[in-house]
Amino acid sequence: MNREKQRELLRLLEEDSRLTNEQMGTLLGVAAEEVANEIKRLIDEKIIVKFPALVNWERVNDNPFVTAMIDVKVAPKREVGFNEVAERISRFPEVEAVYLMSGANYDLSVVMEGKSMREVADFVSQKLATFEGVISTATHFILKRYKHDGISFEERDDDHRMVVTP
């Protein structure tokens, strides 16, 4: 599959990974078998790493999760920079993501989920802040999601009233 078709396939999968190989093949103008082979190759090469569903947890009754974004200031180590600390942080199961940041007053951005604010606070104070090389942390709790991965969670009622001007 050429690069252009491969990128189109990746965009289709990002938009709706529930499409069948036949449907994607039709959209791309290739055989379903070629789509299946390309998806397998992309998975094997770790270009495709997961096929997630995006859940709006605010609509689920009794949502059990609190999400926090934690800014981490790190003293980089010779020869490994920030990589060693980032790798160690990413091993915790409650950590959803770790990013190296630029242009900020911190070096790493950590996204984590906990069952309560107390659980997040305990993680930060007992695990994260005690890491060798961690200079400081700042924790931000997500109060409401408006948009995630390009998907808007807000339902807007379109105003169907007639516009009246004087």
Rank of each mutant, 00 (worst) to 15 (best):
N21S: 12
N21A: 15
M24W: 05
T26R: 15
T26F: 12
L28Y: 12
L28D: 12
V30C: 13
V30T: 13
V30L: 10
A32R: 15
E34C: 10
E34M: 14
V35N: 03
I39C: 11
K40Q: 12
R41W: 05
R41L: 12
R41Y: 09
L42Y: 06
L42Q: 04
I43C: 14
I43R: 14
D44P: 00
E45I: 08
E45R: 14
E45G: 07
K46Q: 07
K46T: 03
K46L: 03
V49F: 09
V49A: 11
F51G: 06
F51N: 07
A53V: 04
V55L: 03
V55T: 00
V55W: 00
N56W: 04
N56D: 15
W57T: 07
E58I: 10
E58D: 15
E58W: 15
E58T: 14
R59K: 14
V60A: 04
N61I: 04
D62M: 10
D62V: 03
F65D: 01
F65E: 01
V66L: 06
V66N: 05
V66H: 08
T67Y: 13
T67D: 08
A68M: 08
A68N: 09
M69K: 12
M69G: 09
I70T: 09
V72T: 05
V72L: 05
V72H: 07
K73L: 15
K73W: 11
K73N: 11
V74E: 06
V74P: 07
A75S: 10
P76K: 06
P76Y: 06
K77V: 04
R78A: 13
E79S: 09
V80W: 04
G81F: 05
G81I: 03
G81K: 07
G81L: 07
G81R: 07
N83R: 08
E84V: 03
E84D: 14
V85K: 07
V85S: 06
A86C: 03
A86E: 08
R88T: 00
I89V: 15
S90C: 02
S90K: 03
S90L: 02
S90V: 01
S90F: 03
R91G: 07
F92Q: 02
E94K: 14
V95H: 02
E96P: 00
A97C: 00
A97F: 02
V98T: 09
V98E: 08
Y99G: 06
Y99I: 08
L100M: 13
L100Y: 10
M101A: 15
S102N: 10
S102W: 09
S102I: 11
G103H: 07
G103R: 09
A104V: 06
A104H: 10
N105T: 12
N105P: 04
Y106E: 06
D107K: 07
L108V: 08
L108N: 15
S109I: 06
S109M: 14
S109P: 00
V110Q: 02
V110G: 02
V110P: 03
V111K: 10
E113G: 00
E113F: 01
E113A: 00
S116Q: 04
M117G: 13
M117E: 12
M117Q: 13
R118A: 09
R118Y: 13
R118D: 11
E119M: 08
A121Y: 11
D122M: 13
D122S: 13
D122H: 13
F123C: 06
F123P: 04
S125L: 01
Q126G: 03
Q126M: 08
Q126L: 09
Q126S: 10
K127G: 02
K127R: 15
L128N: 12
A129F: 01
F131W: 00
E132A: 13
